[in-house]
Amino acid sequence: MTKVTMTVNGKTVSKEVEGRTLLSAMLREQLNLTGTHIGCDTSQCGACVVHVNGEAVKSCTMFAAEADGAEVKTIEGMANADGSLSTIQAAFQEHHGLQCGFCTPGMVMSAAALLKDNPKPSEAEVREYLEGNLCRCTGYHNIVKAIMAASGQDVPAVAAE
């Protein structure tokens, strides 16, 4: 067992983990941050995306020990300080960018990372960036709309309402 210390959603946490413990497992099982979801076992689905030192990472692809000393942000840390939905979260609700909600945390975390690097992406750029996030419910149509809207772009220009 190894002791790891990291900042998760602004709070310092220390836990004893096995070498094989994945960051996703530590978040879900030891920190009870169950918003990070596990949808596959081959790092394909993206339901587990979190931010590690500001970068989008599939937390099932990283050992908890590798995140020692890192700043981690999960879906639970994405709302505004007053608890209201952040711009991206609000856009997902406004444009019905989620149905069952299972892929949603990963989608929101990926969208946030995209808009940080590319504040005004084209529709094609949004679709390409989301290659690592699977959604079975929405057909991506409204997810793309939501991300375009969150970037301040004109949604009807990319999609017939």
């Binding site: 918003g35 979801h37 999960t74 879906i75």
Partner: peptide
């Protein structure tokens, strides 16, 4: 707008 979205968007869904 969907009321269930509030929990799903903030990681509070209970699966």
């Amino acid at each position: 707008k969907r009321r269930e979205d509030l929990r799903f968007l903030t990681g509070k869904g209970k699966y």
